[in-house]
């Protein structure tokens, strides 16, 4: 019974890891690949680690290290994905041609427009 649960959870984890790797290989631009990378961590690593916990029992050194690794991966991998995507956007990695929106550029454009209007109002009051 325990072996069946372990094999089922590990198959779920391996399937998601494989699909994430295929996504990293086949996606058209960097940002989609970063999304596939976090999918690999969240849905691919966690079921495999839970499989190890189930197989070895909760009160064992394997389970404690597996849970600690799961905590570290859940905490640190979104942070590294965010840092990487931000650095890539700042350094000008091009988007896919079929991308429809660039919300960061729109927000920057709105911010600059608002600043320009405020400066114009300020100079008008001085006159």
């Amino acid at each position: 019974m325990k072996a069946v649960i372990v094999i089922a959870l590990a198959c779920v984890g391996l399937g998601f890891s494989l699909s994430g790797a295929v996504g990293i290989l086949r996606m058209p631009d960097l940002y989609c690949r970063i999304q596939c990378s976090s999918k690999t961590t969240t849905m691919g690593a966690l079921p495999a680690l839970i499989a190890l916990v189930v197989g070895e029992g909760v009160l064992s050194s394997y389970a404690s290290r597996a849970l600690l690794t799961a905590f570290l991966l859940l905490l640190l991998n979104p942070a590294s994905s965010h840092a990487l995507a931000r650095a890539a956007y700042k350094s000008g990695v091009p988007m896919w041609d079929g991308a429809v929106r660039d919300e960061a550029a729109e927000a920057r454009h709105r911010r600059e427009q608002r600043r320009r209007e405020r400066r114009r109002d300020g100079s008008g009051q001085e006159d």
Binding site: S17, A21, S37, T40, T41, N77, S81
Partner: peptide, 15 residues
């Protein structure tokens, strides 16, 4: 990105 995912897979494999 590929290197980060390789490290995650290597951690699971080592466990």
């Amino acid at each position: 990105v590929a290197l980060n995912t390789v490290c995650t897979q290597a951690a699971l494999s080592v466990l």
